[in-house]
Structure formats: C-alpha cells, structure tokens
C-alpha cells in the first residue's frame, strides 16, 4: 500500500506556521508600520524623535560596548571550559550541570543576585570592609562610577549568559573525533597548535551558532542592566521599554525595536560571512 501522501508533511507543519504567522509575523509587520508612520500616514517622525533623543547616542554606544566586551570573553571562557571538561573522565556531567545553573535563572533574578552583591550594603562591600580594604560603604553602581557600573553589568552578563555558549561549544567539541587530535599529536603538534589548527576549524559550525545566538542576545540586553543600573546605563531595549511604558509613545518604542532587529540581522550576516561553514570541510 504505497499511496502518495505528499500533503502530510505540510499538514503537520501547518500549526507551527500558523502559530508563528499570528504571533510573530503579524506583530512584526505592525511594529514596522508603527515605526515608520504617524497617525496612519507614512512618516519618519518616530525615527527622528529616537535619533535626536538625549539618551539615544549613549544607549547605542553602551549596547555595542557591552556586546563587544561580553561576547568575546564568553566565547573564550566557553572554549576554555569546554576543553577542560573534555579532558575529564569522571564527574563531567556534574560540572556541566553546575556550570549551567545560571541558565535556569531569569534575567531579572540574575540582575537581583548581582545587585545584592554589588549594591552599597551588598556582599562585596561587606567583604572589602571586613578585609580592611575600604573604610566605608562604596558605591559601584551610580552614574558617578561609570566604569565600575559597566564592569559590574558585564560581569553579571558574563555570569548569566556564558552557559548557553558553553553548551553549544561542548556539543561542537563532542563532534570532533579524538583521533584527529591524536593524529595531530603524533605528527608533532603542540597542545596550542592542536587547538588552533585542528579543534577550532572543526567546531566552526558550533562557534558560528554560539556567536550569532550570543550576539543577538547581547544586543537585547535589558533586565540585568535595569536591575543594576536603571537608567544610569541606558541600553537600546531599555530605551524601547521607557518610550513604551514611561512615555506611552509606542511609535518611538517601535522605532527602537526595529533598530535592534536591524542591528541583530546585520550582526548575523557578518557572522555568516566571517565564520563561513563549508560542509565539505567538516568531518
């Protein structure tokens, strides 16, 4: 009984397509329209308001600086962590499990955790005071301490978001047969050479996925920043949130949303070009 039922696959993916269409494409089109219209007619007024706003330049700069600081550190850390667990024989799962705990915590909760450490009456000050390094409570998270605030936010983001990168990298590393490394070792490659000439090229696909995912998420950073810095450290999503909720100006909020999407898409395209994955050159 071989009946031609070529419609079945389409029927099976239909619900997800409808779901995405209703809850993604429709709002996307609406947002795009909201951003480039004013009272129902095409207009760049929202864009102009966005660009001329006092916080716009700072939020763009902050978002990019944070992404540039956080993503490379996370990739390096994830590669290091992944390479370390790869050498382990026992207890590997336990270590991975502990490392991925931050994944199970919401952005805002992660922000609160670090707030409890870094605020004036927080654990960091207590420890520094106890050790006699500081004489009175020190503020780390104010507009007067921009560098400390930036570092605090970066550390919190690294703590929160490295696990997802590591999971992707570990999965990639697991795909590399150990014979490749052994062959390289036999033929005289040092551990560093093995890593740069064999491992890294072979985990390109994982590296590409991790970079895209992590960069897009970094451009969307919000809750951690909001918890630690409030508006002392404006970022793009924070500004969108403010225009939406504080100023009740949905048009400018939509303009920010569109800008974030364009930046994310551009970053993705850059990665697809820069970290090219040629299926012919994979195991």
């Amino acid at each position: 009984m071989t009946q031609n039922r070529s419609w079945i696959p389409y029927a099976l993916i239909l619900p997800s397509v409808v779901f995405l269409g209703l809850l993604f494409v429709v709002p996307l089109v609406q947002t795009l329209w909201l951003a480039v219209s004013d009272n129902g007619t095409p207009s760049l007024a929202n864009m102009t308001t966005m660009v001329t706003d006092l916080n716009f330049g700072r939020s763009v700069l902050n978002t990019f600086l944070l992404t540039l600081a956080v993503v490379p550190i996370q990739i390096v850390m994830a590669l290091t962590m992944g390479s370390m667990v790869a050498k382990m024989n026992g207890g590997r799962e336990t270590i991975l499990w502990i490392w991925t705990i931050p994944l199970g915590i919401s952005d805002l909760a992660a922000g609160m955790v670090w707030l409890s450490i870094l605020q004036n009456t927080g654990y960091l000050n207590s420890v520094l005071f106890g050790l006699g390094i500081i004489e009175r409570q020190t503020a780390w998270l104010t507009y007067q301490t921009p560098v400390a605030l930036f570092i605090g936010i970066a550390i919190a983001e690294i703590w929160r978001g490295t696990a997802i990168v590591m999971i992707i990298i570990v999965a990639g590393l697991n795909q590399v047969p150990k014979e490749f490394k052994e062959a390289a070792e036999i033929f005289g490659a040092s551990p560093w050479t093995r890593f740069t000439r064999i491992t890294l090229p072979l985990i390109r696909p994982a590296l590409q996925s991790a970079l895209i995912l992590r960069t897009v998420l970094a451009f969307e950073v919000f809750a951690v920043v909001y918890a630690l810095g409030g508006r002392n450290f404006p970022v793009l999503v924070g500004e969108a949130y403010n225009w939406q909720n504080q100023n009740q100006n949905y048009g400018v909020a939509a303009a920010y949303a569109v800008l974030i999407m364009v930046i994310s898409l551009a970053a993705t395209l850059v990665y697809l070009k820069a970290v090219k994955v040629d299926p012919e050159r994979l195991p």
């Binding site: 014979e179 052994e182 062959a183 090229p201």
Partner: peptide, 12 residues
C-alpha cells in the same frame, strides 16, 4: 608515525 582505523585525515 601512525595510521588510524578511521583515517583521521583532517577534513578542513
């Protein structure tokens, strides 16, 4: 020098 069962020829 060594030759491996699954070749271990570097694909990249």
């Amino acid at each position: 020098a060594m030759v491996f069962q699954n070749y271990a020829v570097f694909p990249h």
